Computed example of a mutant assay.
Amino acid sequence: MPVRAGHGWWASHAQSPTVLALSPRLWRIYFAGRNSDNRSSILAVDVDPQDGMRVLDEHLDPMLGWGPPGTFDCSGLAPSCALMVGGCVHLYYSGVYPRNDVSFQIAIGLAISDDGLSFKKAFAGPVRGIGPTDPYFVSTPFVGTTEYGYRMWYVSGTGWAQTNGVWEPEYVLRSCDSSDAIVWEAHSIAVPSDDLGDGISQTRPWITHEAGGMRLWYSRRGRDFRASGNEAYRLFSRRMDAREGTVGEAEPVIFSNPPAAGEFDSSMQAYCCVMQRPSGDVMFYNGNGFGEAGIGWATRDLT
């Protein structure tokens, strides 16, 4: 799905694709579009997954307003997970607000809708912000059901490091639980991983279910990721155990038709959202420039 620059206030990017399956032939893709001041809001398109992701409808007016000055989402919004809870759509999003010392601060917000289009924030503040185990920022949550209620996998900032004279964030994946998908426990636990070396960060978790357990999908990058070399954003997955965390090795996502020079994802593949259907998985993701060119999708035939 390419960016339609110049459409209203939407000037660039289609970042962080977040899919909600409304029916077998109707998937709604929420995403973050930016205006000319580089501030993002949440938009959506409806597609038919059984007809080559043919666009059925577009919802290109912001679905949620920025917060007033001083709030956690006063400078931008980006979707990360949408699910049905009690007949309503719960949309979890990253809210951005500026800082003077580093580029930004991020916290996790929740908006609720009866129809998946008209949203109202659950609270004026975030449902998860900085705290004892999350001292810097939190972002890009995935929320799923468990036998105990709900679990959130999310990104937790571990600090900022200077790379080529620029302060860049570093982060890991953590998780926490809730009984109602609204109020979350203050405590959180680290998602075990053996691919976190010096300067390595992981972001945008997504969970799918498969025979024998779950699978965690995520993006991994090094400290010098803007150089578009070996430390650039790449996609990985790991088998997971619901109670004990990750148990499998990190598996890189391999494309049968690898990104080539000049293509929209030649130097970056990140922020994936993986949907499951009887014929196989569909992965939506962003390419170069954090979704500057739009959203791509790839399939995995399970047969």
Rank of each mutant, 00 (worst) to 15 (best):
L173N: 08
M63Y: 02
P49H: 05
A270F: 10
W206I: 05
W217Y: 04
M268Q: 14
S118E: 12
D194A: 03
N288R: 01
Y92F: 15
F225L: 06
R151I: 13
W297Y: 14
V274T: 09
L173V: 08
G52C: 05
M84F: 14
R28L: 12
M275N: 01
A122D: 08
L26Y: 05
G86I: 15
Y171W: 13
C88N: 12
Y271V: 02
G95S: 08
E58W: 10
V247Q: 11
D195P: 00
S237A: 02
G125C: 09
P252W: 11
P141F: 04
E263Q: 15
E168D: 14
M1L: 09
F225A: 05
H209C: 00
S113C: 07
I182W: 09
Q162N: 07
R4Q: 13
R128M: 14
N35M: 07
A261E: 15
T71N: 02
S201G: 04
R238P: 03
H59G: 09
D101C: 08
G287N: 09
G157C: 10
F72K: 10
H209E: 10
G70M: 10
A21S: 11
N164L: 13
S40F: 10
G296K: 07
T303Y: 09
D198G: 04
P17Q: 04
G165K: 07
G213Y: 01
I200A: 00
Y92A: 11
E244C: 12
R54Q: 13
V247W: 13
E292P: 00
F290E: 02
S267D: 07
E147P: 01
E263V: 08
I182R: 14
H13L: 09
E147T: 15
W167H: 10
Y30Q: 04
T71S: 15
P68D: 13
L235Q: 06
G131F: 06
S193N: 05
A32F: 12
G248T: 04
F137D: 00
M240N: 00
A78K: 02
Y92S: 02
